[in-house]
C-alpha cells in the first residue's frame, strides 16, 4: 500500500513544526508496518500526551490517545483483552520516562508483547521547551536558562535493566536502520523498546546552538556510531546505535493463558 493509505489525510498537513523529527519517525513506522504487510485492522497504536503522541491522530490504524505517561497502562489493557493484536506505543521522552517512568519499567519487567517507541527529542516541546529526564546535564532549556544540572537517563540501559526482551536505538538521520529496527521490534514476542533520537529544532535546537533540523540531523550523523562497526578498544564518546538486547523470555499474556489453563484444570 502507499503511505497515504496509512494516514488520515484530512488532518494533513500535520501540526508538527517544520523539520520536526517526529514526522520522520511516523514516516519510518508506516514503512515498517507496510514492509511487514500487517493488516491495519490488526494494529492498535496507543499514545499519551505530548507532541509525539499526536501521531495516533494521523495514523489510520486502531488508535487510542490517552493520559500523559499512561499510554503503556492502556496498552497493557488492550493487549491482555485482545492478545492477538499488535500493540504499538509511540511516546515522547518526557511522557515515557518522567510521568510515565514507572509504567515504563514495569511494562519492561512483565515482558508483555508491546512495542514501545521512545521518540527522544530531549525536551518538552508542546508546553514550551522545559527540560526532560533525557535532556542531560549541560543542556539549555526554557526552564534551565543557565544550564541544566540534571543528568539524563540512558533509555537503553534502563530498559535492559528493567527486563525488556528487545532494546534498540536509532536516529531520524539513519532512516533505513530505523525502519529495520522497528520491524524487528514489532516482530519480537515480548516487550520491545526502540529509542529514536529525534530533533526538536524549535526548542531543543534553538536553546542548544543548533539552528535547524538539518544541523540536528548532522549532529546525529556525526555523533552516533553503529554497534556493528565498533573496533576493539573503542573509546570514543559517541552514542551507540543498533540492537542492544534481543532475548526470548516468557511473554506475559502467554503466561497468563497458561495460569488460566492450569487453574481451570484444577477445578475439574
Amino acid at each position: 500500500m502507499a503511505v497515504r493509505d496509512y494516514i488520515r489525510q484530512r488532518f494533513f498537513p500535520h501540526l508538527w513544526c517544520p523539520g520536526c523529527g517526529h514526522g520522520i519517525v511516523m514516516n519510518g513506522l508506516i514503512r515498517a508496518i507496510d514492509h511487514m504487510a500487517i493488516p491495519k485492522n490488526d494494529i492498535v497504536m496507543v499514545s499519551g500526551i505530548g507532541c509525539s503522541s499526536r501521531i495516533t491522530g494521523y495514523v489510520d490504524v486502531h488508535t487510542l490517545h490517552t493520559l500523559h505517561g499512561r499510554a503503556l497502562a492502556f496498552a497493557a489493557g488492550v493487549k491482555l483483552s485482545r492478545p492477538e493484536l499488535r500493540v504499538i506505543v509511540p511516546m515522547g521522552d518526557g511522557d515515557a520516562l518522567s510521568i510515565g517512568g514507572n509504567h515504563f519499567i514495569h511494562a519492561a519487567r512483565r515482558n508483555m508483547d508491546i512495542t514501545a517507541i521512545v521518540m527522544n527529542n530531549r525536551i518538552y516541546g508542546m508546553t514550551g521547551g522545559q527540560f526532560s529526564p533525557l535532556s542531560g546535564s549541560g543542556t539549555q532549556a526554557s526552564t534551565a536558562p543557565f544550564g541544566n544540572i540534571d543528568p539524563a537517563f540512558d533509555v537503553v540501559s534502563l530498559a535492559k535493566a528493567a527486563g525488556a526482551g528487545f532494546v534498540a536505538r536509532s536516529t531520524t538521520y539513519h532512516v533505513t536502520e530505523m525502519i529495520d529496527l522497528l520491524k524487528q521490534a514489532i516482530s519480537h514476542r515480548g516487550f520491545s523498546v526502540v529509542e529514536i533520537l529525534s530533533q526538536c529544532p524549535t526548542y531543543f535546537g534553538k536553546h542548544n546552538g543548533m539552528e535547524s533540523a538539518v544541523d540536528m540531523m548532522e549532529n546525529f550523523r556525526k555523533n552516533t556510531k553503529s554497534l556493528g562497526k565498533i573496533p576493539e578498544g573503542y573509546s570514543e564518546d559517541k552514542v551507540l546505535r543498533g540492537v542492544f538486547v534481543n532475548e526470548n523470555r516468557p511473554e506475559y499474556c502467554q503466561e497468563y493463558e497458561r495460569i488460566i489453563a492450569s487453574a481451570m484444570k484444577g477445578e475439574t
Binding site: G21, I24, N27, V175, T176
Partner: peptide
C-alpha cells in the same frame, strides 16, 4: 529514496 524517507511532512514521493 532518502528524501522520501526523511521527509517529516510525508510530502515527497
Amino acid at each position: 529514496m532518502m528524501c522520501e524517507l526523511r521527509c517529516p511532512d510525508l510530502a515527497i514521493e
